[in-house]
Computed example of a mutant assay.
Amino acid sequence: MENAQLRGELDQVRVELTGLRAEMSRLGVLSAIELEQHRVRLSREIADLTAKGEAEKAELDRHLRGLRQQIVVTEETALLQEAGVYRYRHPLSDAVTYQSQLSRLQDQIKAMTRKDGGAVKAATGWTVNGSAAEGRAMVRDFSKLMLRAYNAEADNLVRG
């Protein structure tokens, strides 16, 4: 009798185990080995995507550096044009003896045109409607206007 009782209990455990396995399968529960394999595969994918992302970031950084260099050149040109300094072809540009002097002169003009470069001397303590900021803005605007007018006259004289 004891043997029959053990068989009955064993059959009951087998039925319960089969039911639990069916439930695990239905829920998508994986074994420890399957979980480890899945983790390894995901780790490899993460490493590959990270490497790809870093390579793309490096390429974008290189591209950004190039664009920033172009912006600096464009900003400098815009600032010079704002002051009336344009890149023009001088009649002596082809003369080898004058090329270095013309280049030095253009560099000097660029340096003087920048803020506090010495091309324009203006009052610093000016106020407008009691505002020092508005005064500085007005002085800056008039300084640009005067420098632009001067450069236009100088350009006309050189060309004439």
Rank of each mutant, 00 (worst) to 15 (best):
residue 60 L to S: 05
residue 45 E to F: 05
residue 101 Q to M: 09
residue 53 G to C: 07
residue 46 I to L: 13
residue 100 S to C: 03
residue 73 V to I: 08
residue 79 L to G: 10
residue 49 L to N: 14
residue 89 R to H: 03
residue 70 Q to A: 11
residue 84 G to Y: 08
residue 97 T to K: 14
residue 62 R to T: 01
residue 54 E to P: 01
residue 88 Y to A: 08
residue 68 R to I: 03
residue 97 T to L: 12
residue 55 A to G: 13
residue 40 V to P: 04
residue 74 T to H: 09
residue 81 Q to R: 15
residue 37 Q to C: 03
residue 92 L to K: 05
residue 78 A to Y: 09
residue 89 R to F: 02
residue 86 Y to N: 11
residue 69 Q to A: 15
residue 52 K to C: 03
residue 34 E to F: 03
residue 68 R to P: 02
residue 59 E to N: 08
residue 93 S to P: 00
residue 88 Y to K: 11
residue 35 L to P: 00
residue 67 L to M: 13
residue 33 I to H: 06
residue 72 V to A: 14
residue 55 A to R: 12
residue 66 G to K: 01
residue 85 V to T: 01
residue 59 E to R: 14
residue 57 K to Q: 11
residue 51 A to H: 12
residue 98 Y to R: 06
residue 56 E to I: 07
residue 57 K to V: 01
residue 38 H to L: 13
residue 77 T to A: 13
residue 44 R to Y: 06
residue 97 T to Y: 09
residue 87 R to N: 11
residue 75 E to V: 04
residue 77 T to V: 09
residue 42 L to Y: 01
residue 72 V to S: 12
residue 82 E to Q: 13
residue 89 R to E: 13
residue 59 E to V: 01
residue 95 A to T: 03
residue 33 I to E: 14
residue 71 I to C: 10
residue 94 D to S: 09
residue 68 R to N: 11
residue 64 L to N: 11
residue 67 L to E: 15
residue 72 V to N: 11
residue 79 L to V: 01
residue 90 H to P: 11
residue 80 L to K: 08
residue 69 Q to D: 15
residue 93 S to L: 05
residue 81 Q to D: 10
residue 82 E to T: 02
residue 79 L to W: 03
residue 97 T to N: 10
residue 62 R to C: 00
residue 77 T to N: 10
residue 35 L to F: 00
residue 65 R to D: 14
residue 98 Y to N: 07
residue 60 L to F: 01
residue 85 V to D: 07
residue 37 Q to D: 11
residue 54 E to C: 03
residue 63 H to D: 07
residue 47 A to K: 12
residue 61 D to A: 10
residue 87 R to Y: 05
residue 39 R to W: 00
residue 101 Q to T: 06
residue 97 T to I: 13
residue 99 Q to L: 07
residue 71 I to R: 09
residue 39 R to G: 00
residue 42 L to D: 09
residue 54 E to H: 06
residue 85 V to Q: 12
residue 83 A to F: 04
residue 66 G to L: 11
residue 75 E to K: 15
residue 33 I to S: 08
residue 93 S to M: 07
residue 92 L to A: 13
residue 42 L to H: 02
residue 82 E to I: 03
residue 93 S to A: 14
residue 35 L to Q: 15
residue 40 V to M: 13
residue 78 A to D: 10
residue 91 P to D: 06
residue 77 T to M: 09
residue 93 S to N: 09
residue 44 R to H: 07
residue 32 A to T: 09
residue 92 L to C: 06
residue 96 V to F: 08
residue 92 L to I: 01
residue 57 K to A: 13
residue 98 Y to H: 09
residue 91 P to S: 07
residue 89 R to P: 03
residue 71 I to H: 07
residue 75 E to T: 00
residue 70 Q to F: 03
residue 35 L to S: 09
residue 76 E to A: 11
residue 98 Y to G: 00
residue 65 R to S: 05
residue 84 G to K: 10
residue 59 E to D: 13
residue 65 R to T: 04
residue 86 Y to E: 14
residue 80 L to S: 07
residue 61 D to M: 08
residue 86 Y to C: 05
residue 77 T to H: 13
residue 32 A to C: 04
residue 54 E to I: 02
residue 59 E to A: 15
residue 83 A to G: 07
residue 85 V to N: 07
residue 94 D to K: 09
residue 94 D to I: 04
residue 97 T to C: 08
residue 45 E to P: 02
residue 99 Q to W: 06
residue 42 L to Q: 08
residue 38 H to I: 02
residue 55 A to W: 04
residue 70 Q to G: 15
residue 84 G to V: 02
residue 32 A to L: 11
residue 39 R to C: 00
residue 63 H to V: 05
residue 71 I to D: 08
residue 58 A to K: 10
residue 79 L to R: 14
